[in-house]
Structure formats: C-alpha cells, structure tokens
Amino acid sequence: MTEPLLAIRDLSKSFGTVQVLKSIDLSVNRGEVVSVIGPSGSGKTTLLRCVNFLESYDGGSITIDGVEVGYDEGRKPRGERALARMRAETGMVFQSFNLFPHLTAAGNVMLGLIKVRGKSKAEAHEIALHWLDRVGLSHRADALPAELSGGQQQRVGIARAVAMEPKILLLDEITSALDPELVGEVLEVVRGLAAEGMTMLMVTHEIAFARDASSRIVFMDAGTVAAEGPPAEFLATADDHPRLSAFLARFRASHF
C-alpha cells in the first residue's frame, strides 16, 4: 500500500492545562479531499494549523511524504529555513483571507513565486495571471484587495496558495466569513481543483459541499476523531454516533 501523503499519528496538543487534541490519527492520500467537520472547540482548526506548524504539537507525529513537519530526528523544533521550506510544500487558505493589502491581486500571488520558488518577475507574473484566470479573476489582476469583494478576495487567496504548487492544500473554513451569495463562487473553484486531483484537507461548515466534493468526511468532537468515512456511508451511519447525529440535526434544522 502506498504511503499516505499526509500522515497524522497519535497527535496531542494542549493549550496550558486544556488538552485540545487527544491522540489523533488521520491520513490523507494523494488526490484525496478530506473534510473535517465538528462543533466549535472540537480542535479541528488547531489540527489543521499543526499540519503547517502554525501551531506546535506536544506529542505524536505529522509527516508529509514521510518527513516530520515540525521537528527533526532529535525532537528539536526545526530551524527557520527548514520550517519555511516545509511550509512551502503546504498551501493554506484562511477564513479571513489574509491577503497582503499593499500588493495587487497579481502581486499577492507572485510574492511566494519570486521569493520562495525563485521565479523571475516576468515568469511569476505569467504564472499569477494563469491562476487568477483559473479562479475567474484575471480581469482584476491589478486590483488591490480593498477593491475586491469578499468572494473575490478569497478566490485570490486560493490562487495564491495553489500557485505555489503545494503537495497538499489546507483550507480553514474558507467560506465562513463570506456573505451567503458569495459562497458559491468560492466553492466552485474548490470543486474544480478537487476534480483536477488537488490533495486537500478542509475544515468546513458547508456540510452539503463536504458531502458532494469529499473523498472522506471526518467528524471531530472534543479533541478526538469521533467518526470517519466516505460521505454516503458516513451520513447513513450517522445515527450510530449520538454526538454526530446531534450535530447534523442542528445543521439540518438550520438548512432545511
């Protein structure tokens, strides 16, 4: 069996005395889209942020293509340069977009290409335009983030992450801060990327989208993986897990 691209084993993390992640096991294979759902406080965002070491972790391991993310062989935290190189292999899209306000849309996408991938300015510009076109925003390449709508900003955020050609894309509730009518355009882009085989780990509240686009759904509750499986199977057996069905019931109530 081939090694999973992302392997999370026995992951534990505490903030002070509160343990937010308790011995998590989770794998993502190449080309898979894994959605993580769950109530707030379940640790799903923390889990995601551990994968690109925006958060450190206390126990267990996270490996990408077999290489431990945050620590070297002696369990010492990785140095600045090594960490930066690791992070270049994972792309992240944020809930609050976090576009660089002093750069245009194209500039946002180009920054990583020039500084990290070593492209020339001309090359980077070409690549940036290509990806902006993919997310439907090539006509706004020279706009500043302040001149874009929320949905447009998030699409630029996706382009910025994907242009780096990461091994895996991490999506942190990317539509939660959007007005409902703008959510669709962003999910469209994600769907397209999934169809092209982009490996993704997605924390989301969009259950319907998770059901339609994922290879697997993971339900997290109070720091553990409470349920997991391909969408159809997952939803069908939801009633076996009382907390999951309670969670989904709330969702159904608010959406139907």
């Binding site: 925006l54 930066a84 992070r87 270049a88 792309g91 992240m92 944020f94 976090n98 920054l111 990290v116």
Partner: peptide, 19 residues
C-alpha cells in the same frame, strides 16, 4: 493573520519582515 499568511507561503522571518 498577515504573519501567518506569509508563513504559509514559505517565507522566512527576514522575508516576512521585508515583504
């Protein structure tokens, strides 16, 4: 979030500060 976004695309400390 700005620092985090800069980290996420793989910029080092000095690159984050400068750019």
């Amino acid at each position: 979030g700005q620092t985090e976004a800069a980290m996420a695309i793989g910029l080092t400390f000095r690159e984050r500060l400068t750019n």
